[in-house]
Amino acid sequence: MTMQFDLVSPERSLASVKANAVDIPGTEGDMTAMPQHAALMTSLRPGIVRAVSDDTEIKVVVTGGFVEVTGENVTVLAEEAYSVDEVTDEVIEKLEAKAEAALDGKEGSSLDIAERRLAETKALRGLLGR
């Protein structure tokens, strides 16, 4: 049993395939969506979306965005997305710099959010094994 997996960023569509399971880094925790999953919407934190089908595995680094899960579809609306092979050290550095720049001028709860994002962005390196 499979479901339709789409991953799109504002500039382009990165994946549109059938998948058996999709790992999603949600803001409230990681989850795996499988066919017949209950309808769900969640926002994303910086992390890796992984879609597994019988013969392939797609890994995409996302910086944030949203996921819509229905029984038959998983649609990822990524803010920025790079397939794992595209992610060089340079890209990671750029993302980290951007997350750090976002701290400027923030206070209270939005500072907390920005700080958490920065930590999550930094954690990307470990997830990618660099």
């Binding site: 803001t27 409230e28 309808a39 769900l40 919407m41 969640t42 926002s43 949203f66």
Partner: peptide, 20 residues
């Protein structure tokens, strides 16, 4: 009649989603 579960809740998601 599809009812979604929201994570975090609707309001928070909307606040993030609408500007985008």
């Amino acid at each position: 009649g599809v009812f979604y579960e929201f994570e975090p809740d609707e309001q928070e998601l909307l606040i993030e989603l609408l500007p985008r």
